[in-house]
Amino acid sequence: MKGVLLVNLGSPASTDPKDVKSYLGEFLMDERVIDLPYLLRTILVKGIILNTRPKQSAKAYSKIWWDEGSPLIVLSEKLQDKVNQETSVPISLAMRYGEPSMKNGLQELYDQGVTEVLLVPLYPQFAMATTETIIVLAEQLRDEFFPKIDFTVVPPFYNHPDYVTVLSRSIIEELEKIDYDHLLFSYHGVPERHIRKSDITNSHCKIDGSCCQTPSKAHQFCYRHQCYETTRLVGEKLKLKEGTFSTSFQSRLGFDPWLKPYTDRTVEKMAQEGIEKIAVVTPAFVSDCLETLEEIAMEADEIFKENGGTEFTFIPCINDREDWVKTLSRWIDEWALSK
C-alpha cells in the first residue's frame, strides 16, 4: 500500500522561550544546519546561542503567532487536509524539527498498512539543511523502526513547469493590485561552504557569478543555482523586463560568508538609490513562517521605509492555494498509479 509524508521545517510548540529554546536546540544541533565538528557545534549552540537567542526569537515568534498556533504548522495542516481530499492515498504531515515528528508521521502511515512512502520535502530547492537532512533522517528512522518501508523522494521542483506556473500566478495576482518599481526574490541564505560541499564534481561551484549559468552536473544539488533558476523561469513566465527584478538571500547567521547579496542590505540600498516601491516574494518557502512574516513583511519593510522607500509589498507564499493543492495532488496521484 502506498502513502505520502509531507515534510516541512517545523516550529516551536509555543512562543514561550523554553519551547523556542528546545526547538532551536534540535534545529541548530543538526550537523547539516551548522556543519561544524560535534564538539565545536555543541559549544557554539549550547554554550552561546541557546543562552542568548531564545528570548529574542520568542519575541519575533510572538509577533507572527496566530490564535490557532504557528503559521507554518497551521498552513501545513491546511495543505495536508486539502491534498488528502484530492488524492487516492493516505497523506501524513511531519516536521523535520519539533512536532508532529517524522517518526510519528511514518508510524501513522505504517499503522494504515503503508509500505511504500512518497517523501515530499516541502522545499522547492535542494539544500543540505533542508531536503538532504529530511532524507537522511527518514532513512535512519526506516532502518531503526520501519524496515519494511520503501521510500520514493520527490526531487527539488524549483524548475518544474507546474510549480513555476503556480508561483508565477501567486506573484502576478499581487502585482496586479499595486504599482511597483522592482520585484525582489528573497531566498533563505546558506553558508557559501554548503554550496561547495554539495558540489558532486568537487570543482564546478566557485560562486563567481558565472558558474550557476554554466551547465554542470553540480546543479542537481546546487542551492544557489536552483534559486537563480527559479527567479529566471518566473521572470520569463511573467515577461518581466530586465532590471525590474533580482535575487537576494536572507537570514544569515554568524560571521562566515553566506550567499550574497544579502536581502536586508539590498532593500536598504534600493531605497537609498531612489527606488520608491518594491514587492518581495520568498520562493524558498512553500509556507509562510517566521522568515517571511517577520523578517520580510515586518523587518525588511521597516528597513526599506527608514531609508526612503515609500511602498513595500510582501507577496505571500503559495501556502494552501487551490492551484498548488491541485498540482501537488496530481504529482501524488501520478506516483500512486505508477508501478
Rank of each mutant, 00 (worst) to 15 (best):
M1S: 08
G3S: 04
G3Q: 01
L5M: 13
S11N: 15
S14I: 11
D16H: 15
V20K: 02
L24H: 07
G25Q: 12
L28V: 04
D30W: 03
V33H: 00
L36D: 11
Y38L: 14
L40K: 01
T42V: 00
I43E: 01
I43H: 06
L44P: 10
G47L: 07
I49N: 09
T52G: 08
R53Q: 10
A58P: 02
K59L: 11
W66R: 13
D67L: 09
S70M: 06
I73W: 02
I73L: 15
I73Q: 08
Q80I: 01
D81I: 08
K82V: 07
N84R: 14
N84E: 14
Q85D: 12
A94V: 09
D111Q: 14
V114W: 11
E116W: 09
V120P: 03
L122T: 03
T133E: 04
L141Y: 12
L141S: 05
R142V: 11
F146W: 06
I149L: 13
F157H: 09
Y163Q: 02
T165H: 09
V166P: 10
S168A: 15
R169Y: 12
K177S: 13
I178L: 04
H188N: 06
D199W: 04
D208G: 05
C212R: 07
H219S: 02
F221T: 12
R224V: 06
H225N: 12
H225K: 02
Q226M: 07
R232C: 00
R232H: 10
K241F: 11
F249T: 02
Q250R: 10
Q250A: 11
F255C: 08
R265E: 15
R265T: 15
T266S: 13
A271H: 04
E273Q: 15
G274N: 01
G274R: 11
I275A: 06
A284F: 04
E294K: 08
E294N: 12
E295I: 13
E295Y: 01
D301P: 00
I315M: 08
P316K: 12
C317A: 14
N319V: 11
D323S: 12
K326S: 14
K326P: 05
R330I: 03
D333L: 01
E334Y: 07
E334M: 05
S338M: 09
K339Q: 15
